[in-house]
Nucleic acid binder design. Structure first.
Lengths: 297, 297
DNA sequence: TAGATTGTTAATCGATTAACAATC
DNA sequence: TAGATTGTTAATCGATTAACAATC
């Protein structure tokens, strides 16, 4: 029942990620100090210039940087040359202070009284996100979703070329999908090593996911994007992101239900206000909605 | 450049969500104490079955509840009847205190010294997530991804039946996909209203997304799951979740890059330690991490 | 200089988690 | 009773954001 030793629990990392920074080394968590500090401490206080970037950009900020990048690219396409934090934050849908703080992780590329140069910002974000190099992708599980992913035009720019496809189905092996022939699951380690795949996308049924994950790791894959509804166990050095459709839908379901509850409460509160007082024991207090909540929307 | 009035910015909400709770009732937040304690103190264990749920479950906790539910269902299938927070948290990959706190939002369904009854927990989580009712889903954009989603077996259980499909392509309209005929984008409001769709899934190209979103909202859809890489503007009462493949990949890219930097830094620290000091000038500037002091424009 | 906007500080708010009293 | 485990408290940690000095 307990996670295997020597493996890191993907979900845990993911959850921690929510809270924090640079969560890849959960151990390094309370003592992140294990190896990094050695490096940092290496050049002591002087060490500004160093791999400071690597230090600590919160995961949430990284995700937002990717959004800013997209917005900025759009602006650049429309000929914008300069943008203020106020403008950019409005379009990206974040607080402008948060935006400036996020951008400050990149360094100091704005001009007071003026704003940011769009192209400079684009370049810096790309650099920080490591988009100046290519990351080869393998898609495992060529079902509906895998098929879609293999053909996906959405892999941003040409920075994430799909260079390997895998499936168990012998009928699929050898068949080209999106111009690339499908290989067998058994060949994952060899093919990934050979083609220098750095990102593995798992689009298999849940039962196969862990085994596929293990083979990807054996093939030297550094990061995994997991669409299978399972909590993957991976070694320390492997980063997992999870996209879970079921969870997304269930979160939405929760909100629908919550809203229904609120409406119901409002209705019975209304009823109560309309006269009969015998039911006063029920709704308001129970729901803990005492405040302006009701009339808000 | 600024978000339209009367609309809420999806991304902003999403980001806030990361930080927070039930943002809709910010008031009830700091003073839940005002009324609740009275109630709770009053009957302690009583009044559970109720809409207490509406109070304040952090979004992050909701997402985890969905994960617990999946794990518990698996355990139930394997015949488990009871589970401790320690076991469940290990499998779900979270801290056990966090798990207990999350479960405490449901009410008090454990037995000290024993643990939780699996079936009870499953039932309570389902109730809280609103899974006791059906949520009809519409998929808009029947391209690769939409196709996959329309056929997706992954929509959990039968709680999220796909009951409408839409696309702009006249050649697709009328064609059944996964047994359901595709309707035209223009019919979104009418069809959604008629079929009582509560969740809209947007799988269109980014340019079409906002307009599709507006029509879904016009059709009375309460929640949107957005796969298009755009920040959607929606009215207050509509909940948006976003799944952004590009952002996921870019986050992974960041981690690959960071790791490379760390390795490099470690290497040069090593080199430095080994004697020669002349190379200390290289990596720092090269990485452009000098706080931008030098090359400020 | 006057106006604008950045970059940063510090206050605030929320989420995580160790620890433990309650209690089965 | 002794052992186990929950539910909750309080300390801690991190993320958000208003506000403002720096400065273009």
């Amino acid at each position: 029942m307990v996670a295997e030793r020597g493996r890191r629990n993907g979900a845990q990392a993911a959850h921690k990620r929510g809270r924090g920074v640079t969560r890849d080394a959960p151990d390094a968590d309370n003592a992140p100090t294990a190896e990094m500090p050695a490096v940092d401490a290496g050049n002591g206080a002087a060490g500004e210039g160093d791999a400071v970037r690597a230090k600590a950009i919160p995961e949430a900020a990284v995700a937002r940087l990717a959004v800013y990048l997209r917005v900025l690219s759009g602006m650049a396409d429309q000929g914008a040359t300069t943008v203020s934090s106020e403008e950019l934050s409005a379009v990206a849908g974040v607080n402008s202070a948060k935006l400036r703080k996020d951008l400050s992780y990149l360094g100091s590329y704005g001009t007071r009284g003026v704003g940011y140069e769009v192209t400079v910002l684009v370049g810096q974000i790309e650099r920080t996100l490591g988009l100046t190099r290519k990351h080869k992708v393998a898609v495992v599980g060529i079902g509906n979703l895998g098929h879609a992913l293999a053909n996906y035009g959405g892999f941003p720019g040409r920075g994430f070329p799909v260079e390997a496809l895998f499936d168990v189905d012998p009928d699929l092996v050898g068949v080209p999908v999106g111009g690339l022939p499908v290989s067998h699951l058994d060949d994952i380690p060899a093919v990934c090593t050979e083609r220098q795949i750095s990102i593995g996308v798992i689009a298999t049924p849940p039962t196969a996911a862990q085994s596929v994950c293990d083979r990807l790791v054996a093939g030297g894959v550094q990061c995994i994007l997991n669409f299978a509804p399972v909590v993957l166990q991976v070694p320390e050095h492997v980063e997992v992101r999870k996209v879970d459709l079921a969870v997304e839908l269930q979160i939405l379901s929760f909100h629908v239900a919550r809203r229904a509850d609120i409406a119901e409460a409002a209705a019975s509160a209304q009823a109560a206000a309309n006269g009969s007082s015998s039911d006063s024991r029920v709704p308001m207090t129970k729901l803990g909605l005492g405040n302006g909540l009701v009339e808000r929307s």
